[in-house]
């Protein structure tokens, strides 16, 4: 049996900064109380043809935002001037479906920095974290409180502290959220995964070489 190679835990890891840093955010929020919002709604496939990361915000929630003639639909929340802000609050199982990172780019490009939901699809969560967009998972009950608070007072300021891992409503109620310590450090410092991986090049090369020999990988 191959044992995974573990390392000494205080070995320093050198990572360069390449993303925007995130500590705490205070902002009004946009409520979107729909469950199972899939990435095809966030950014429909026909808008995935760009070869850069920018500009996807224009087509964020395209088919909910605009009708067939490109006119804004008045009843969709992004077209409602009452609700603005850098926080999107959405129903359970946000980001399911396709692995397109364009969904995270579109949300970020539009101006969101945080998405709050009571459940996130795995790949979306990863993609968001890789793009300085913080997914905050709260309980169903707290999510409901947030929706109620915003709907009552659209100007309510919601505080999201990444450093201390909590979401706070204007009435002082708060709930803590979990985030993996590595990802937290990456977001706070603006680190990028790839720099960490590049620092391991030699180890990876050796691994690659070994696994190419027919008998090398025993299960």
């Amino acid at each position: 049996m191959n044992n995974p190679r573990t390392t000494n835990n205080d070995e320093p890891i050198t990572i360069r900064m390449s993303k925007e840093k995130f500590l705490t955010l205070q902002s009004t929020a946009v409520p979107l109380a729909v469950e199972n919002i899939d990435t095809d709604q966030i950014i429909p496939a026909r808008f995935l043809k760009a070869t850069t990361r920018e500009g996807f915000g224009e087509n964020l929630f395209r088919d909910w935002r605009y009708d067939g003639d490109g006119k804004p639909k008045v009843d969709f929340v992004l077209n409602n001037p009452t609700f603005t802000g850098k926080i999107l609050v959405a129903g359970k199982n946000f980001g399911c479906g396709s692995s397109r990172e364009h969904a995270a780019w579109a949300l970020y490009d539009y101006g969101f920095r945080v998405v709050i939901s009571s459940f996130f699809a795995d790949i979306f969560k990863n993609n968001a974290l890789n793009n300085a967009l913080l997914p905050v998972q709260v309980s169903d009950a707290f999510l409901k409180n947030i929706f109620t608070a915003i709907e009552k007072y659209p100007s309510a300021i919601i505080e999201v502290s990444l450093e201390n891992q909590f979401v706070k409503l204007p009435d002082g109620t708060k709930e803590s959220f979990e985030i993996n310590p590595y990802k937290k450090a990456c977001m706070i410092n603006g680190y990028d995964d790839i720099d960490y991986l590049l620092s391991l090049q030699e180890e990876i090369k050796e691994f690659d070489f070994k696994s190419r020999e027919p008998q090398a990988t025993s299960y």
């Binding site: 049996m1 995974p4 190679r5 390392t7 070869t51 397109r100 990172e101 391991l200």
Partner: peptide, 30 residues
């Protein structure tokens, strides 16, 4: 999984070696 972990470190995600990678036109340009 265990046979493909290049490195494991507490609090860090596993560094997982990938034997085969497929790419297509939509998610690779960036």
């Amino acid at each position: 999984w265990d046979a493909h972990v290049v490195k494991q470190k507490d609090g860090y995600p596993d560094v997982l070696f990938i034997d085969r990678h497929f790419i297509h036109e939509v998610t690779s340009p960036q």
